[in-house]
Amino acid sequence: MKKRQWVIALVGVLAVGMLSGCGNAAQTSSSTSSKTTKMATSSSASSTDPKLAKDEAILKKAQQLNVDGKYKQSNKQLSSIDLADLSKKGFGALKTEFFALQKSNDKFLLKKHKQSKTASTTKSGTAAASSKTTTPATNHRFDGYSKFVGDYTFYNYDSDRPQSDLSIASDGTVTQNNNDGSAYYGTATIKASSATGILSYDVSTGTNDTKTIHANVEVDVVWDSDNEHETYYGYTSYDGNSVLTDGNTYDGNLVNEVWIK
Rank of each mutant, 00 (worst) to 15 (best):
Y201S: 06
G252H: 03
K61T: 09
F154Q: 01
T135W: 00
K132Q: 14
T207P: 12
L65A: 11
D224C: 05
N75G: 07
D143H: 08
A192M: 11
D246I: 05
A45M: 03
S116C: 04
R161N: 13
S164N: 08
K35E: 03
K111E: 14
L10T: 09
N105D: 14
T41V: 09
Y235H: 04
L10N: 11
A188D: 09
T36G: 08
A100S: 11
W259M: 06
L110Y: 08
G144K: 01
G240I: 04
S29P: 12
G197K: 05
M18C: 15
D143I: 07
H214I: 04
L14W: 14
V203Q: 06
H214Y: 10
T28V: 11
A169Q: 15
T138S: 13
S131T: 08
I81L: 03
S34K: 13
K70L: 11
K61N: 08
L86P: 00
G186I: 01
A25M: 15
S124C: 12
T121P: 07
I198N: 06
A128M: 15
H229Y: 07
V174G: 00
G197F: 08
A15W: 13
L14K: 03
Q64A: 12
T189G: 10
D209H: 12
K95I: 06
S130N: 12
Q102F: 11
T249L: 14
N253V: 07
W259D: 03
K61L: 07
V11C: 12
Q115G: 14
E257I: 06
A137H: 02
A62K: 03
E230Q: 11
S164K: 07
S104N: 12
L14F: 15
R4Y: 15
K107E: 13
S124E: 13
G125H: 09
T189V: 14
L109G: 08
Y155D: 02
A57D: 09
R4A: 13
D220A: 15
S167R: 05
A192L: 12
K72T: 08
L166C: 02
K123D: 13
I58E: 01
I8C: 09
I8N: 07
D151E: 04
Y185H: 15
Q77V: 00
P136C: 02
S237Y: 02
Q5S: 13
K117N: 10
L109C: 08
F154K: 07
I58H: 06
Y152M: 00
F98V: 05
V16Q: 03
L244I: 02
Q5C: 09
K60W: 03
G186T: 01
N227I: 03
D171M: 02
D106S: 11
Y235G: 00
S74E: 05
A53Y: 01
F99M: 06
T175I: 06
D226C: 07
G240S: 02
G150M: 02
L166R: 05
S194H: 10
F91D: 02
S124F: 13
Q63I: 02
D224I: 06
I198D: 06
K117M: 08
